[in-house]
Design a protein around this nucleic acid. Structure first.
Length: 762
DNA sequence: CAGTGAGCGAGCTTCCGCTTGACTT
């Protein structure tokens, strides 16, 4: 029997460590936190404000059975080793375990390891310590503060905006980033500039004719300036006045963290954040990669050594360069290593193509981080003419030694960064002849909209959120409908191109599409309204450095320089009065004007079911409502458009079939059409106003088909319902098991299914 | 829940971080 029980956080880790420690050690896992502050599904904040903010911890109901097992094993063991991660949360997990399992301090030891290798684990076992209560208290402060913010702010939103909303230290700031970026884009005023490019032909070192593509190092703000300059260029004599070469180094990026993996997988493989994490989890569970939720760029000694062996073996000594990276991101806790293959020499791993592609990315990035710098030479050729200012410049880059680039090159968000080319070898002072000039109108670009991955990157820079929560943050703000993933169609615009060829100037207008965006995070009206309310009344919590400031306080607690209750108290004393100050009533809608018929006010606002127009108010009779259509916004809808929405609600004839009218209506379950005795719901996303006769016929036909039994056995009919197939009987409906083969169904089988149903109801 | 075709209002909702669940009628 095992004399020792070791408890880690992850089951996979438990498996690996179990192998290293042998029979005297039984290694189990807690699967994360086991307790949390009471309040899940209850109308309770779970904090005793009268008693130093004491949290009321309750066991996670899904962990009951696991804790029973741990308790039993702990009783059997001589010593329990709490081996959760070496960070704030890990320390808290260890403490909660000690409490819940009622471990005796003299038979409990706290250990941490920095890498999962046999020597590292044996070293940890040889150097146990006690639970660090300062660290635990730092976590309690973090947890209690988040609970207070979340559970005091959210109900305010239910009251002021609409039910079911949420606010929090992390999610609300994430929404703010997206809202503000969208407004920057809306307010962006593009500036037109003229860039001038020119092609020159001349002789290279071997006397062969070559062409140089150059760009002028000046941009003109007006067309007339550009035209004037180009006119001067037309007959001017040009020559090469300078050639310079500069050697440069390029260093590899560090191995992946959760955030950088999400970014690169999004850019290179087009994976959404959630997919990347699911695939990484699978690779981790299969033992191919190290832990995927980390903010560390650290590599273990073993990893660095195997990387060296792999690189030297594959590419030679010259390509190897051992490096250790330092984490720069704010608030990093570094309980794990960087994300890397567990065995660098395995070139391919994964159960499917996506897993293999992600593994490949992880491996190449990790190996490249241990490779030599790339050495390049940038060449710059300057072409000028004596009579004119500014310089035409051609730049080129040659790779002298590819180094890490042989394996992996990091991508960027800015796709416009085109690769530079190799320049011909030419003589300084050599004459060149212009073959053409182009002055093209270009425009400054609005800031980028956030993608899932670039939002995560921004949050990480601000120290907001943790690797284990990045994917969940995106999920939350989308489920709450503050933000949606979407595309923005491009707009057309004209631009001028002035060309000089064969001594002739031509001036043309061309059109281009700009501002098109795909799969970006876009704020909804609800997101904007909620954000504006929070920013107005809770500027401190909504500020981008709120988390960083609080993290400083948590660090003081962790260092034993501050008491956690006092940190929470000083926050609460300024925060809670703001909550008290919020006036009753909803946030104001946008007033569009008044109803020309009744004179009642018309406002655009958020209702329970989404953005809507309201005519009249509750004090003066019953208000009327109409939902906004897709693409419409509270912020931009006009009075005319609003009134039209009410017109659209009125019954009207959309078609006439065989002499009978098809009429629209508004029902309990949304818009519908009625034809003779049949009611048919208008499919989501379709507008009653734009239904064609063809649509109507199709809808009626589908409805008729759906009411036809697939098969019939006397009184029993096999029907296709919204949730699968079911049996319609005079006594009621009975659902069919999922994989029933309808074509093989017999009357006996149906009766048996009905019989079973009747029995189970008793 | 398995087709419904008006307008009541009760009772509910929520945070951030750790981690892997999964229930079959």
């Amino acid at each position: 029997m095992s004399k020792n029980l070791v408890i880690v956080e992850s089951p996979e880790k438990a498996k690996t460590i179990g192998k290293f420690l042998g029979e005297d050690y039984h290694v189990l896992s807690s699967k994360g936190h086991v307790r949390d502050i009471e309040g899940q599904g209850k109308n309770s904040i779970g904090i005793d404000f009268e008693n130093h903010y004491q949290p009321n911890y309750v066991i996670d109901p899904t962990k009951e059975a696991l804790l029973e097992t741990l308790k039993k094993e702990a009783r059997k063991a001589d010593c329990v080793w709490l081996a959760s991660d070496e960070d704030r949360e890990g320390e808290a997990i260890a403490w909660h375990l000690q409490e819940v399992l009622q471990l005796k301090p003299e038979r409990t030891k706290r250990i941490v390891f920095h890498e999962i290798t046999k020597p590292a684990i044996l070293d940890a076992i040889a150097n146990p310590r006690q639970i660090d209560y300062n660290l635990v208290n730092a976590q309690q402060a973090r947890r209690v503060l988040d609970r207070i913010v979340g559970f005091e702010l959210s109900p305010i939103l239910w009251r002021k905006v609409t039910t079911g909303l949420s606010a929090g230290r992390v999610q609300s700031v994430a929404v703010r980033l997206i809202v503000e970026r969208e407004r920057e884009i809306e307010a962006f005023e593009e500036q037109a500039l003229y860039r001038v490019t020119a092609d020159f032909k001349g002789l290279n070192a071997e006397g062969k004719e070559v062409v140089l593509h150059t760009e002028l190092n000046h941009r003109f703000t007006t067309k007339s300036e550009a035209v004037a300059y180009l006119n001067e260029c037309k007959d001017a004599p040009f020559s090469i006045t300078a050639i310079s070469k500069k050697p440069q180094h390029r260093s590899p990026a560090p191995p992946f963290t959760t955030s950088s993996l999400q970014q690169e997988a999004a850019r290179k493989l087009k994976f959404p954040v959630s997919r990347t994490m699911r695939l990484a989890q699978a690779l981790y569970e299969a033992g191919w990669i190290t832990y995927m939720r980390t903010d560390s760029v650290n590599l273990s000694g073993l990893a660095i050594a195997t990387a060296k062996k792999e690189i030297v073996g594959e590419y030679g000594e010259k390509y190897h360069h051992a490096r250790q990276f330092k984490t720069s991101s704010k608030g990093a806790q570094e309980a794990h290593e960087a994300i890397r293959p567990t065995n660098m020499s395995i070139a391919s791993a994964g159960q499917n193509n996506d897993e293999r592609r992600l593994y490949d990315l992880i491996r190449k990035r990790a190996l490249a981080s241990q490779m030599a710098d790339a050495e390049t030479e940038t060449t710059r050729i300057e072409v000028t003419t004596r009579t004119l200012p500014y310089t035409f410049i051609a730049t080129g880059e040659t790779i002298l030694f590819d180094g890490f680039m042989r394996l992996y090159v990091q991508s960027t968000d800015d796709e416009s960064e085109a690769g530079e080319s190799i320049l011909p070898v030419m003589q300084e002072g050599g004459k060149v002849e212009a073959t053409g000039f182009v002055g093209q109108q270009t425009f400054t670009k609005a800031p980028f909209r956030y993608t899932e991955a670039s939002l995560v990157k921004k949050l990480e820079e601000l120290g907001i959120g943790r690797p284990s929560t990045y994917a969940a943050i995106i999920d939350t703000i989308i489920t709450r409908k503050y933000v949606e993933r979407g595309n923005v169609p491009g707009k057309k615009r004209e631009f001028n191109t002035i060309t000089i060829a064969n001594g002739k100037m031509t001036d043309k207008k061309k059109t281009e599409l700009y501002g098109q965006d795909n799969q970006k995070l876009l704020p909804t009206d609800l997101g904007k309204i909620t954000n504006d309310f929070l920013v107005e009344h809770f500027p401190e919590i909504m500020s981008y450095d709120f988390t960083a400031k609080e993290e400083e306080n948590f660090d003081y607690i962790a260092e034993g320089k501050a008491e956690w209750e006092k940190v929470v108290d000083s926050f609460y004393r300024t925060f809670h009065p703001l909550i008290k100050k919020i006036p009753s009533g909803k946030v104001d809608g946008r007033v569009l004007g008044s109803d020309p018929e009744t004179g009642e006010p018309i406002i655009a606002k958020i209702s329970k079911i989404g953005p809507c127009i309201q005519i009249g108010d509750a004090e003066n009779g019953k208000p009327r409502f109409a939902s906004l259509k897709k693409g419409q916004s509270i912020y931009t809808i006009t009075l005319e458009e609003a009134l039209q929405l009410f017109e659209d609600l009125k019954p009207h004839v959309v078609a006439v079939i065989d002499g009978d009218e098809v009429i629209t209506g508004q029902g309990k379950y949304g818009p519908y059409i009625k034809y003779r005795d049949a009611y048919v719901s208008v499919p989501k996303g379709k507008d009653v106003m734009t239904l064609t006769e063809e649509d109507v016929k199709k809808m009626l036909q589908e409805k008729a088909d759906s009411q036809k039994p697939l098969r019939s056995f006397g009184d029993i009919h096999v029907m296709q319902g919204r949730y699968g197939c079911y049996l319609k009987t005079p006594e009621g409906n009975v659902r069919l098991p999922k994989n029933t083969r309808i074509d093989q169904l017999t009357e006996e089988a149906c009766k048996e299914i009905i019989g079973r149903r009747v029995k189970s109801e008793k």
